[in-house]
Design a protein around this nucleic acid. Structure first.
Lengths: 336, 336
DNA sequence: AAAGAATAATTAATCGTTTAACCAAATATT
DNA sequence: AATATTTGGTTAAACGATTAATTATTCTTT
């Protein structure tokens, strides 16, 4: 493989010093540092040789890499994939590249990824944290490392967050079912011990209680490790256990739970919308194609991504971190 | 922000030279280069200080970054998101990080991304090429830059490819509809002028011709720029134009076309499976939840990703490129 | 006892870029 | 004419890690 073109190559070609080439290529040739003709000559040669600056060398020298690390729970999940898409598009506008990584909800993997990304000298991190990732992230926070947590947060950790108002969103969703005359509304949520999920549950509980419809048996916890089995068990209990009165509404607290749940209900012949109304978090392509579309809570994904980038870059350039929690609002797909 | 820990920090802490620290941390302390106690001491301090090697410095010195660049058409498309997922997981096993980027099918963006990634000193590239990206990629190929094209290919460019047998897959899909007694099978494909799409079309044409079912009016070309409008026009023409005999089968050559198409058909009350049978490329969550599931061509996504990584890393470590086209086989979701 | 080998460390150059500090010549100012 | 300023560059150090070459000990071997 041919050697890459460096500043030195250009300097030799033109018969001049490295420094001058660097000045020109960084547009620091104004203020009478380099003559017009020389600057033009250098630019021409650089273009002819198809010169691309060595990011590693520049990053090393400058102490920053113009790269940000993005850590999501699973890139193959459309919610995170969309988030990643918008983050990348937007970060690029500011000259930042994005390295996207997955934790698969594993705390151990988060720690490892953190090391790898720090090693890559990323200038900052956008993190969708894992359930017990707090210690690792807290260490970075202590060092004032630029980062912003996205989608989820740790209650007692003072840092930057971009999240949505899960409580409100959840209330709106459940209220929607109540408005549709549902009397027995089930909740399907993850067991994950992070406040975004707790907030969704709290929104559910408060809303059904207020309507006098609370029934503990209607709350089903799903472990994402055994998602398929847990959902089947829960649905079987709700719909095919003679002892129980069937629900007439289900609130799925995440998209993945909804998809698995709907699939199983379909398999078992439970008709969504007819037998039981459903609503869930986050849109899926699937919902448009069902016999009757499932309404959902729409998170403002592009805005979340952009805001995360804004908050992060602000930290990076200012060199200082002012902890803040930015909360956006979700809305129902049926609204407006 | 606190300064990052470097080898020098450790060296000073232990009261020793940089070189020794480096040797130990790279496990080159065997063969009597460093004493046992010293090595242990260094390792301990490194761990205590939570040292992470500076990737930039190492990459600069070593002339390689242990990073590979992945260029896909759209990370928010589940097909590519899954591919990205598997590529990342697998590359990690070999100690490579992956930078994921999007072209959004734009040739200009491909050129730009290529520059950015080369600047990042990626050791190699996995590329889902754009329609007219050949010149840019050809230049890299001429320089023997390690790369592998994925999913799509350029007929006259000799380099490394990992693709599926689109012709065969397409034939299988269309044959499935024929087996289901379809007599008027429509094709919905993209106008993109790349052989993977041409092969899918050829598979369709050959198969319907062989069955004596060919009718040019059933071939619909969709431009991804105006995908929504084009699909509506095409479907309107097929189903609501009095002059035409309606189709009883549709082969969607991509997932995105299928989703848009199915949605519009749903909207217009065309019953899939009852009025018209459908089959398409790549699985979507949506298909499981429809009144009657849509069968699809399943590409071996994990294998494609792994193979691409294998082929690429092989080039990188061998330092030489042997052009090759690896073809995998897709199968129907209804098979086996 | 002298030479050779093994052990255990250090020195210094290098990767490509940036940039503060410096220098020389031409031009302007007093 | 002497001095100051502008113009147009160059030098050399630095970023952090790697590694070939070197040095200084200690231990074997004859």
């Amino acid at each position: 493989m041919k050697k890459r073109i460096s500043i030195k190559t250009i300097a030799q070609e033109v018969g001049i010093s490295n420094a001058t080439v660097s000045l020109v290529l960084n547009d620091k040739d104004k203020e009478g540092r380099v003559s017009r003709e020389m600057a033009e000559k250098i630019r021409k040669v650089a273009k002819d040789l198809n010169y691309e600056p060595n990011h590693l060398a520049r990053g090393l020298r400058m102490g920053k890499s113009q790269t940000i690390g993005l850590i999501v729970a699973d890139i193959s999940n459309p919610f995170f994939a969309n988030l990643a898409f918008h983050i990348q598009e937007y970060a690029e506008k500011f000259g930042y590249s994005v390295i996207i990584t997955n934790t698969n909800e594993s705390d151990a993997k988060l720690v490892k990824i953190l090391d790898v990304l720090i090693g890559h000298q990323v200038d900052g991190l956008i993190i969708v944290p894992t359930e017990h990732g707090k210690p690792a992230i807290e260490e970075l926070v202590k060092k004032d490392f630029p980062l912003v947590l996205l989608d989820r947060w740790y209650p007692e950790l003072q840092t930057c967050y971009v999240v949505i108002d899960n409580y409100q969103a959840s209330k709106t969703a459940v209220q929607h079912l109540i408005n549709k005359k549902c009397k027995r509304i089930a909740l399907f949520g993850y067991t994950i011990d992070l406040p975004h999920m707790q907030e969704r549950k709290r929104g559910y509980v408060d809303t059904v209680k207020k309507a006098g419809l609370f029934d503990e048996n209607l709350i089903k916890d799903i472990n994402y490790i055994s998602i398929d089995a847990d959902i089947k068990t829960a649905l079987d209990d709700l719909f095919f256990n003679e002892k129980n009165e069937k629900p007439d509404g289900i609130f799925f607290a995440t998209n993945s739970i909804a998809l698995h749940g709907l699939r199983y209900m379909f398999e078992r012949g439970v008709k969504v919308s007819k037998d039981v109304k459903a609503i869930c978090f986050d849109k899926s392509d699937a919902f448009d194609l069902m016999e009757s579309p499932v309404p959902c809570v729409l998170q403002p994904i592009p805005e979340m991504g952009k805001l995360a980038v804004d908050v992060l870059i602000n930290q990076i350039v200012k060199g200082t971190v002012i902890p803040s929690k930015v909360e956006l609002f979700a809305k129902l797909s049926t609204e407006e």
